[in-house]
Design a protein around this nucleic acid. Sequence first.
RNA 1: GCCGCGUUGGUCAAUCGGUUAAGACGCCUCCCUUUCACGGAGGAAUGAGGGGUUCGACUCCCCUACGCGGUACCA
Length: 533
Amino acid sequence: MCIRSYRFVTSNLVIYWVHLCPMSKKVRLRFAPSPTGGLHLGGVRTVLYNYLFARQHGGEFILRIEDTDQTRYVSGAEEYIIDCLKWCGLEPDEGPHKGGPFGPYRQSERKVLGIYEKYARQLVEQGYAYYAFDTPEELEQMREKFKTPENPSPQYGHTLRHRMRNSLHLPDDETQQLLAAGTPYTIRIKVDPGQQISFTDMIRGEVTFSTDGIDDKVLLKADGMPTYHLAVVVDDFLMEISHAFRGEEWLPSAPVHILLWRYLFGEDKMPKWAHLPLILKPDGNGKLSKRDGDRLGFPVFAMNWTDPKTGEAATGFRERGFLPQAFVNLLAALGWNDGTNQELYTIDELIEKFSMDRVHKSGAKFDFEKAKWFNHEWIKQLPVTAYSPLVKALFDEQGIPTEATHFEKILELVKDRCTVLPDFIPNAGFFFQRPATIDLAAFQPKWTPAKQLFFVELIRQWQLEQGWDSHTLETGFKEMAAAATIKPGELLLPLRIMLVGGKFGPHVFDIVALLGRQETIDRVKHVLSLMPA
RNA sequence: GCCGCGUUGGUCAAUCGGUUAAGACGCCUCCCUUUCACGGAGGAAUGAGGGGUUCGACUCCCCUACGCGGUACCA
């Protein structure tokens, strides 16, 4: 990049640019999920904050698939994640699905290239890591053996590693023999006690850990795959990541990553870290999980997800009838605000106003009521053309014909009363097909022959009616009511019920106008025929 | 157990040492609407506890409690 700029820039500026180049790192962020299942609310929010920061700084947003655990790999999960990002409008600039200059973007493919192994061996040579030959069973025995009430989970670290089978404590020739014999091994980082490791988190400020409590994490697994710890730092370096935003659950392992940066690439090249607060379950405590959604009746995944192994299905916000604009908006607001009273933001406004230092430190309980409020607001504010195809698809699914020419006018008329997209069905369905049930009981007790007569006369009038707009229809109706000496209120409710089937819906004469002359008359006639003469 | 992070109404939250401690969701009341919503006007409801520092603490420090996260050849 520097070289390319060189040609187009005057010599004075070149000096400036070349001088600045190593310092002013291009802004590059990444979302690095494991393809193990549905994309959780918290995951999408992590994506969002990454995306907003990247866009705000004219940088790039990268998708990297961390599929280093073959036992947890779920087929289809990667495509699903990509689809979710697309639905949310948070599309990466680089990723496994579209390539880019820093590929491959799947860690399993990068592993084949020997990338991680190279760095793992380098660490061993430098004395920062070592070979460990302990089998899973041996590790289990160790944990069992050294477990005490005070220390229920003994760690493989400076206090215990001398009792284990590793290149640090085995005689050199034995290590060489084991290696030569092809004995399975892992490579573990050697963490020396007695050091303080500090770093500045963009949300939390300075955070300090002592190496005393950090174990010798496995870097390279026996199958040759890197663990997360090795893979993130190697890939963040190789992909020139400038800022790494991830969930708070990673905070405790940050010191391991910092050590790795120090040993491998230099701490000065390390991305700036931010550990995002968790999204908590609405009741009680703890991380929001899919189970909470099932239990409390709301989605936690962005889109529908069915686990291919278990067949277990989970509904998504999309299928529940959320608009992506609302989904992104509500996620942005969960843990961040700009200090004003504004709550509704477009993605462009978010890009402009988002700032990491206004992200909360503490987790937020998810409130589905508030989430629905956001959606409701977006349905009301957006022009119906923004979502009418989605609504049409919903009607199609229900087998409700929507050939009516006024489709969008109808949606416009009822959108204020729709919180999620499927709400359009009960609120607008009666425009397209006659109500399945008619709440006769609501007006039958007060029904009189005079009213019956009024409606018969009304039909006759409407057949002759010149104009067919809401206002003239209403005045005509009221005049007739006056002539019949019946209070309009006595007639309005029956009319409404004849047309929509119940006590709901927009202004009656708006309905009459949109329904059209023939259909309105037919519906009135039909109900009249149901009434005792 | 140990390590780390956190703690303002039921929930999301503003405040960055001096305010009657905003606003939103939800809830309640009223108005509008001869339906139901939308909308409008009100209302109830908050700084975990204890010590400091300070003329003054929700804001700064310490302790305690509580919660969360981590403590895997999972991410």
